[in-house]
Design a protein around this nucleic acid. Sequence first.
DNA 1: GTCACGATGTATCGGACCGATACATCGCAC
DNA 2: GTGCGATGTATCGGTCCGATACATCGTGAC
Lengths: 212, 212
Amino acid sequence: MLDLAILGLLQESPMHGYEIRKELTAKLGAIRAAISYGSLYPTLRRLQAAGWITEAADTPVTTEEVPALTSRRGRVVYEITAEGKERFAQLIAQAGPETYDDTGFGVHFAFFARTDQATRLRILEGRRRKIEERREGLRDVLGRAAERLDAYTLELQRHGLDACEREVRWLEELIANERSGRAPTVPHTGTAGGRRDNDSPPPPGESRSERP
Amino acid sequence: MLDLAILGLLQESPMHGYEIRKELTAKLGAIRAAISYGSLYPTLRRLQAAGWITEAADTPVTTEEVPALTSRRGRVVYEITAEGKERFAQLIAQAGPETYDDTGFGVHFAFFARTDQATRLRILEGRRRKIEERREGLRDVLGRAAERLDAYTLELQRHGLDACEREVRWLEELIANERSGRAPTVPHTGTAGGRRDNDSPPPPGESRSERP
DNA sequence: GTCACGATGTATCGGACCGATACATCGCAC
DNA sequence: GTGCGATGTATCGGTCCGATACATCGTGAC
């Protein structure tokens, strides 16, 4: 999952570790807490070893002076390679079971702007199916096993069931939207309707281009 | 977290591993997938080594015959010890930051029937605070950084924000209920109102008794 | 002027938990 | 009589987290 997220982010521009963490936290804030350095740095090294990213020169402000003295160990800027882009496309397209759990789906969804429509649809439907199953499980427990559980546990299940139903409706709208329209404009009760003018909304057709 | 969940479950009755997993899956179905054996069995051994649970005799149907032949390796039934109960009470009462993340809160909440009211209140308020922070973070991103993000990512944030607002309202009701009433009877739009007659709703006063 | 403090920045280590896998028993349907 | 799904215990490798360490830089308080 981290591989996918990092590869996707670096496709927008080269970054160093700290920056990657910040951007990822902003992009994925809705689905998970800040990613830890304990996973980030080892992952960066793994990706580099695999040849999917490379170290780039750290925009040296050195017009001329202090080229090296204190060993110059500062920020390490990473950059995605051609193989990295290929790997990203592969990770995006192939859907295992982990694609549909909370985190996996969130990460995939966050990169939908770089995903072709058929794959988007497949992932949305897979997610819906998974949530429907969870919902049925909760309904079962609330129905059949209710008297074996205490009031708090039951309340927890009810709240979870509610969240499931809500997410299914959300997915339905996204799917309908995807099938016969364009951008993900789900009608919202509260704030701000549909925005435009973003720098990377997918052009109505395909967005991922293998060829530069 | 697993420690707490297992200790809490075994307080209801002795069980073997497979059963623990099933019960936990039912009880925590709303907040997490089934717990894996890869964590369950090592944890059971750890708890046993610490003296918090012990192996109990496996209700031997041996009226007389086959006392041992094929080494008789079957289900291993675990039982909580006095030290285990003490440990459970301690884990329930002490609240670290992990008490308020999604999983941690869910597990604590699932055992609210064995938690005293003051602790319940503290945990509910801590959780609310945490969710409010997450909500503010999402609002910030949706406000300030909106034009840097694509339409899909924004939609993800909106959905997350919605979930946050909903959970805060839920927590508010639970807190109000807790302060000046009894059981967790949150008014629900859809199905089934308040149940009673469960075998372990906390009596209005305290529920956790150190002394047997 | 200096110096404390928060931000930026890289890095490691132990531990928690998962997913895949292996293997053995039991009841029952075909 | 046999295959198959549920029950049941167990291990292994890998991913990710939380705590920790340490170094630099800008800024505002004193």
